[in-house]
Write a protein that binds this DNA or RNA. Structure first.
Lengths: 197, 197
DNA sequence: TCTCTAACTTGACACCGTGTCAATTGACAC
DNA sequence: GTGTCAATTGACACGGTGTCAAGTTAGAGA
């Protein structure tokens, strides 16, 4: 536990993140992760009770490493609702590709596993909070198009910015991350921001 | 094969659709379908080589029963691009809830199965065609906002209207199908239609 | 040095769902 | 009767997760 080399738990998490990254979150088995971490499959279970628990821990671990809060700071410091919305989309759009592997694995596990579903939902609700904050900022500036309630606009923005949509646009449609950020900003602006003339 | 009662194949397809509907596309096993159809699990394999093949057949079967073409006719007959876009969203938005169970099952199978993935992709490309046609109509009316190329607008509309997004809005956000149709129309209009003043 | 403990290893096994195989039944056609 | 075809029953392989028991290894404390 207090040995000189890196804790096994951390080695497992590193291996998990690396493997999921590499295989885009699919087809990575417990045994593969163990091998990558240089330990036996059973040893993984000494640290994580199940695959779902490991995935949840890996997600949390990655969030710390990538420092979500720092990335969202510019958005929170925005001087206007319009700016805040744009900066939020920028931060999120650049974050997705970095977490994609792990997120995808959790997304898949979620379909069959209770714990994974709860963890995913939790993260998505946190993300929704960012959307809500941006919409609220827009609203209190009087710049939210009058057809929308803040609630409804949040629902839509949140849905627009889902990982699945990023996946579709960058995968099926062949967009780059830059294009994604650029056009999602345009989409959000046209959809939610009242034209002032 | 030519007996008086309904062909077993059709009974299986009916049972599949019914079960998937009922369980929202999740946790339905081959044995459950067989039981529902009143035959043995193995008999299902006499008609469909694999679960994926059964799902693909069920999707096709449901499409015939629900008559997609008829539903899309109003959209195709629209007098303007703006109208076409709205009618397309309306047709599609009202179609999704009817196919959701089967679609969801195929969507899940697709993550692990080649054939299911191909079938799903195929259907989604057909759906994309509808999006493209609506955007083209808008474009040739000169009503597509100048920031968008038809291609990019199609990508976005197609992504917006995904089953996953419908799932999120009606599930997590608690929208009704009517609300979905209404607000998606608004979203599409604000996003793609150039304001003429 | 001996011993205790904790982390880890090896190997076997249960569980589940899919898909396969072989032997059998029952009905209808010629 | 004989052939055939759809369906049945029951057994089994496979892959991946998770469990269990027994054995190994290394470090800490007496």
């Amino acid at each position: 536990m207090s040995s000189g080399d890196v804790e096994t738990r951390t080695r497992i998490l590193d291996a998990t993140v690396r493997m999921l990254e590499e295989h885009r979150g699919q087809g990575v088995r417990m045994g593969d992760i163990a091998k990558e971490a240089g330990i036996s499959r059973q040893a993984v279970y000494l640290h994580f009770a199940s695959r779902a628990e490991l995935l949840v821990a890996a997600t949390k671990y990655l969030d710390e490493v990538l420092d979500v809060d720092r990335r969202l700071a510019p958005s929170r410091a925005a001087k206007s609702g319009v700016e805040r919305l744009a900066l939020y989309i920028e931060a999120w759009g650049n974050y997705i590709p970095e977490i994609y592997g792990v997120a995808k694995a959790l997304l898949l596990a979620q379909e069959t596993d209770e714990a994974a579903a709860a963890a995913w939902k939790d993260r998505m609700l946190a993300m929704r909070d960012g959307c809500r904050a941006a919409i609220e900022a827009l609203h209190s500036d009087g710049d939210l198009a009058p057809e929308w309630t803040p609630q409804r606009a949040t629902d839509v923005l949140w849905t627009m910015l889902s990982v699945r949509n990023w996946e579709n646009l960058t995968g099926e449609c062949g967009w780059s991350t830059q294009q994604y950020v650029r056009w999602m900003k345009l989409l959000a602006k046209r959809t939610f921001v009242e034209e002032s003339e």
